[in-house]
Amino acid sequence: MKNALVVSGGGSKGAFAVGAIERLREKKIKFDIVAGTSTGSLIAPLVVTDEIQFLRGVYTSVRTEDIIRKRTVFDILTHDSIYDSNPLWSLINTVITAERYQKIINSAVEMFITTVNLQKGGIEYWNQHTSGDGGGILDRTTLLRAILASACQPVLMPNVRIKEGGNQFTDGGVRECAPLSIAIDHGATDLYSIVLSPEKLEPSNETYVFIVKTFLRFLDLMLTEVTENDISKAVLYNQAIVYLDKLQKKAKKMLTTAQVYELFNDPKNPNPFSGKQLLNLYIIRPLEELPTSGLEFRPFEMSQMMVLGRKAAEDALKKGPLTV
């Protein structure tokens, strides 16, 4: 059995995830794999070090000005983003101390930080146990920059060069908001996925005039779509395994053992699901839209979102894994 925790992106809505994780840990659920995108990548390291109360403290103490700084019109025209994310960079440096970095490196828990490589256009995961240049967290600076890149929404926040002079990276949510696939690829059997948006996006009565508001709405729509695709991939994975299992049982009744073996072990067409297990998939998400755009960090609202997260985790555990 391998437990995986996957935390999606959503800025300050990450407080919902912190509440949910707290409840899961109170239920003695431990994680072997932790994967996060955007705000999820800020949460992941402290789940690996199992400092949930510290995480609660961080997510109820930070304010918007601790994450982003507004630029002047002149600065916007001459810079690569609408906001400056140097405050977030400073926060990440404060939270992920050299001591914590060492704990993460020494931990048996596999951690994955999801980013998108702007030059290559693909998703890149950063893991503390991967050696070499491709996604390997070789030092503290790489980890800090990977977290920053994963959390920087394109256009709103600057792109990040994780390695000096290397490619630029941005929020992993552009391509994968809930990084379920990396957890499945690493053998997760019980997958707890915390998604920070409800199943259906609520209609909006707002007239979109301001660029930032329009962009935030666009991000909401895009992230909802990306998240639903990520979840449906995991559901489809389960459906395929169930279907193949049924097919195999049926074939056993009609064919000889050798024929069945030949049918399901064709070297020319290898079975991609060979040796894979059915996933116990728990989706923990809010029932309604959370009361923030994700870019506003207000301790009061974040405290309330934590309670919603705790309740959603409790409900998801009671309901049991998603059935196919």
């Binding site: 404060t94 934590m306 309670v307």
Partner: peptide, 28 residues
Amino acid sequence: HRLLNEIQKWPDEYYWNIETGVFSRVLG
């Protein structure tokens, strides 16, 4: 970062966790 000063108010992180824990639970 401002948060570092907040944490360093206390001789141990535990007390900062108590402060923020009570704060968020009372509000939440």
